[in-house]
């Protein structure tokens, strides 16, 4: 997802007997769906895992501005330009809310940013794929935001209060992202030959990377079991992926587009679609930095950060002068 392959700290789920009194009390609160708040006692591993997960989620929102930002100056109408700009701006807001949630756990936004820029922290693999034609902007909204929403809606119930509140705010804003994407796809699919070709091409390239967003199967992972027990993960990766496929198939059909999977079919017994796994070798390559756009994405973020340093410092210097002048006057 936006936070894929987050390494859960610790050694897996402890039995009640292995837990200290504090840990047991904490787990009981989580089980009762009580929210954990910043000043409450929490296991160190819970805190460390949350910082990684929220941080990675925030980084994904920020890096995620880039592939869509790639088309803001080329949007085909004034209205599309405004919609896309508002959408990409929302993603910056999401990053900001999430950094804010992470900051309640004792890290600063600048520390997290340094971790991203040095490559020690990751962001979602999906944003290392290029946007090559205008239908890609439709496909990103429809599929990528669609997949993100699938994961974010349940996360509104996550155990950590500030994270949960950030997700509620984000989900409220997300509702227009997927729709504007699908709206573009409808126009393209109903358009001329070239537009239909763009639409199919976009679906072909974004289908498997979208499935990868949920991460490899984690049904046997002890780490995931711990995150599920802490309620910082609500569903397994496979559950979410299945839900996404089942939701998307009829939407593609409505558009008259073909999902690039010849094994895709409805399974009456399971009441769900059977589908092909994405290429997990490709996924791990992208995570390791070998995706089509990893280098460009990091370069863009590093450049923005470094070029902006004098602005951040300059405005801060001015604020200090003002405070000093005010104090002197008192």
């Amino acid at each position: 997802m936006y936070a894929q392959l987050v390494k859960t700290a610790g050694t897996g789920v402890k039995t009640r007997e292995e837990m200290s009194d504090e840990e047991r009390n904490f787990q009981d609160r989580v089980d009762r769906d009580e929210k954990i708040e910043p000043k409450d006692w929490m296991p160190d591993d819970y805190r460390a895992t949350l910082i990684r997960q929220i941080g990675q989620h925030a980084h994904s929102e920020i890096v995620g501005q880039l592939p869509e930002g790639n088309w803001i100056t080329r949007a085909p109408t004034l209205e599309r330009k405004a919609i896309l700009l508002a959408k990409v701006q929302d993603e910056a807001g999401h990053g900001l809310y999430l950094y804010g949630a992470a900051e309640t756990l004792g890290v600063t936004r600048d520390e997290l940013t340094e971790e991203l820029l040095s490559g020690r922290m990751k962001y979602s693999s999906i944003f290392n794929y290029p946007t090559l034609n205008w239908a890609d902007i439709g496909a990103v909204g429809w599929l990528v935001d669609g997949a993100a929403i699938m994961n974010q809606v349940p996360l509104q119930r996550t155990s950590y209060g500030p994270y949960s509140r950030a997700m509620i705010r984000i989900c409220k804003e997300e509702s227009f992202h997927q729709r504007q994407g699908y709206d573009i796809m409808m126009k393209m699919a109903a358009g001329n030959d070239a537009q239909r070709r763009m639409a199919q091409d976009a679906l072909n390239r974004f289908w498997y990377p979208s499935l990868m967003m949920f991460g490899p199967s984690d049904k046997d992972s002890v780490h995931s079991a711990q995150s599920l027990a802490w309620k910082i993960k609500i569903d397994t990766n496979d559950e979410l992926r299945q839900r996404f496929v089942d939701q998307t198939v009829p939407q593609a059909k409505y558009l008259g587009l073909t999902i690039p999977d010849e094994h895709l079919k409805w399974n009456e017994d399971r009441g769900a679609h059977d589908f092909s796994e994405p290429d997990w070798t490709e996924f791990f390559n992208v995570i390791k930095g070998k995706g089509p756009c990893n280098v460009e994405r990091m370069e863009a973020r590093v450049k923005a950060w470094e070029d902006g340093a004098w602005v951040r410092d300059g405005l801060m210097a001015h604020a200090r002068k003002k405070t000093a002048a005010r104090t002197a006057a008192e």
């Binding site: 501005q65 700009l85 910056a92 900001l96 950094y99 070029d307 902006g308």
Partner: peptide, 11 residues
């Protein structure tokens, strides 16, 4: 968009 010195300015 996406390239400003700080998130608040970007927005």
């Amino acid at each position: 968009c996406g390239l400003s010195p700080v998130l608040e300015e970007d927005i």
